[in-house]
């Protein structure tokens, strides 16, 4: 275990800068898009949560998460990776430790990136809400004196205040937040299963070269899709008592893909033909 932790820390030393750069870029694009979106007239009435969706931040988060998983293996694909690989293979101890350490780091950076998104959302809530309110306030029209609908009558000259919202409400409304913090055990189980499988697949990815890496990447993508399906199927099973078959199928696919990837990677590591 200690060796695995040391190996993970060693890889982290090489992945830290790219990871921090990724976090910075992600934070900057999110802030820029949300603030720019909040200032647009066409977005009047949006809340922080709806604006997040309207600015494509859910796919942006998923893309960032995938990037974080790849960045975790920076030591294996940055310039000089061949030297790193040679050094890794000459280390004493079982080879599976290499995969375990890399997978652990992938999992950790994915968790860190997710936590970073949570922190960002909380930090951006106030400025984005302020800009939204300012945009809405500037466009509130004077009350109409004539009302054309037979069922509507004007009874006050003052428009009601734009309702205040809260961070909790805007977080609760965010689908991403609901998926990442489910309130039912099956949701957590599916999330954890998908997460672990994707992390291990990511950990194995860069131990391959050439066509092997392409096949490994295909398995990785396949696993990402199955993990998403497992999370959705868990929701369906919980909410509507259906999709049990889809959940079991997704979990079976995850397990099979994981077994293939692990066996293949460990076999090649044992032969020392990697990197």
């Amino acid at each position: 275990m200690k060796r695995i932790a040391k190996l993970a820390a060693w890889h982290w030393a090489m992945a830290r800068k790219p990871f921090l750069a990724l976090c910075a870029v992600f934070a900057a694009q999110q802030l820029a898009l949300l603030l720019a979106g909040a200032a647009l007239q066409q977005n009047i009435g949006h809340s922080c949560a709806t604006l997040y969706a309207a600015c494509w931040q859910t796919p942006a988060f998923l893309a960032g998460l995938a990037a974080a998983l790849l960045v975790a293996s920076a030591g294996l694909w940055r310039p000089g990776a061949a030297r790193t690989g040679t050094a890794l293979l000459t280390l004493p101890g079982p080879r599976w430790h290499l995969v375990a350490a890399q997978s652990a780091l992938c999992a950790l950076l994915a968790l860190a990136f997710t936590a970073w998104q949570v922190v960002l959302y909380a930090a951006y809530y106030a400025p984005v809400t302020a800009v939204l309110a300012a945009t809405a306030g500037s466009q509130l029209a004077a009350p109409a004196a004539t009302v054309y609908c037979a069922q509507m009558t004007v009874t006050a000259a003052v428009q009601p205040a734009v309702p205040a919202t809260t961070l909790y409400a805007q977080a609760a409304l965010l689908p991403l937040f609901q998926v990442l913090a489910p309130a039912f055990p099956l949701g957590w189980a599916a999330l954890a299963a998908g997460f672990v499988c994707v992390a291990v697949q990511s950990g194995c990815l860069f131990f391959h070269r050439g066509w092997g890496r392409a096949v490994s990447a295909a398995l990785w993508l396949f696993t990402c899709g199955a993990a998403l399906l497992a999370v959705y199927a868990a929701w369906g099973l919980h909410k509507y008592a259906i999709y049990a078959a889809a959940l079991f199928a997704a979990l079976a696919v995850l397990a099979a893909a994981l077994a293939v990837q692990l066996a293949w990677t460990l076999l090649r590591l044992r032969r020392g033909s990697l990197l």
């Binding site: 009047i44 099973l237 909410k239």
Partner: peptide
């Protein structure tokens, strides 16, 4: 949850399993 405004007119869209 401050149900007001243009942003609230859009329909709720559910994923394949209700998420």
């Amino acid at each position: 949850l401050s149900g007001w405004g243009w942003g609230q007119r859009r329909y709720t869209l559910y994923g394949p399993a209700g998420a």
